[in-house]
């Protein structure tokens, strides 16, 4: 029996722009189960980051957010700032692509972790400092007691991201949202950070939402995957189901566009990502879809179960069988 720690229902986010309202997220339903690692894939502008910034209450006031987000039973949409402050860092944390801008350059690393601990727990400074060193050790920073006294500029990019993870998990949150946590890092360092995230998930039972554009990263660490396109979920399922027999033409297209060993010609998805001020009618993917029919222009599909996956495609049943890539 799995417990849902995060339940997102019909989440919508709209920004007012000079060229009119831009609906960046257009009705997302998504569950995160306790202790799982959910991968969220999508290209730039698909709404993957905005959905979770909205969940965290981190969007600017001009963004209009509607729908429902339940975190361990608590409604987050429309909650007061005070309430959100008590939730962030305690029940849910978020880490970002650029670890340097997330750290305060004039405070010691240890103090920045202690601050997070003391803002949610009644701990003496001494106990907080001790716990900070333990956390640095957990995320794999050598000589943690010396490193705790250093400043962010003395850390490399990979080490900074470890510090950020230490801060994010300081209060043992139920959910950790990692938004492209390895995109700015070299691949050998990326491998280390992914290992730290998996270790945290294992050791504390933290549910992790990993937002990325890299299907290789997803294949490596995710239990389940959610594919986003133009502010909607287009497909979700377990990692093996999604990679073995993707149903949605966009998921298929993404997998087919990746270079694989051998010299066979790459298969790009034709056309361009949609302009979200004026997204295509019906299924937003239809102008780029090789299987699009007339109905796709009029009907916006919702997620429906096809075999082991949920897919938002009215033609999913009729599509030719997917050839698995090796």
């Amino acid at each position: 029996m799995t417990e849902k720690v995060l339940e997102i229902r019909d989440l919508r986010v709209t920004f007012d722009t000079p060229s009119g309202p831009l609906e960046a997220v257009r009705g997302i339903d998504l569950d995160v189960e306790a202790g799982e690692l959910l991968g969220v894939v999508g290209e730039s502008g698909s709404g993957k980051s905005v959905s979770f910034l909205a969940t965290m209450g981190l969007l600017p006031a001009r963004a209009r957010v509607t729908g429902s987000v339940l975190l361990a039973g608590e409604q987050l949409i429309g909650a007061s700032n005070k309430f959100m402050r008590s939730v962030r860092g305690r029940l849910i944390s978020m880490i970002f692509q650029d670890p340097l801008s997330a750290l305060n350059p004039v405070h010691r690393i240890g103090d920045q972790i202690s601050e997070m601990l003391q803002s949610h727990q009644s701990l003496s400074s001494r106990d907080a400092a001790k716990r900070a060193i333990e956390l640095l050790d957990i995320v794999g920073i050598p000589q943690p007691d010396d490193r705790a006294r250093q400043y962010p500029h003395e850390f490399s990019g990979g080490m900074r991201q470890r510090v950020i993870i230490a801060i994010a998990i300081a209060n043992n949150p139920k959910v950790l949202i990692a938004d492209e946590p390895t995109t700015a890092l070299d691949v050998t360092v990326q491998a280390q950070i992914l290992e730290v995230i998996e270790r945290v998930q294992d050791r504390f039972g933290t549910a992790v939402v990993l937002i990325t554009h890299d299907l290789g990263v997803i294949a490596r660490v995710a239990d389940r995957v959610n594919v986003m396109y133009a502010g909607r979920n287009v497909e979700q399922g377990t990692i093996n189901d999604l990679f073995d027999h993707p149903s949605h033409p966009y998921t298929r297209g993404l997998l087919a566009s990746l270079p694989r060993p051998g010299k066979q010609r790459l298969k790009p998805i034709t056309g361009f990502p949609p302009n979200m001020v004026n997204p295509p009618s019906g299924c937003a993917f239809h102008p780029r879809c090789e299987f699009a029919a007339d109905i796709c222009k009029f009907e916006m599909p919702s997620l429906v179960s096809y075999g082991d996956l949920q897919t938002a495609c009215v033609r999913a049943r009729e599509l030719p069988k997917h050839e698995r890539f090796v």
Partner: peptide, 10 residues
């Protein structure tokens, strides 16, 4: 983006 990269490589 990934889906665009393939076209440029081609």
């Amino acid at each position: 983006d990934v889906s665009i990269q393939a076209g440029i490589v081609n």
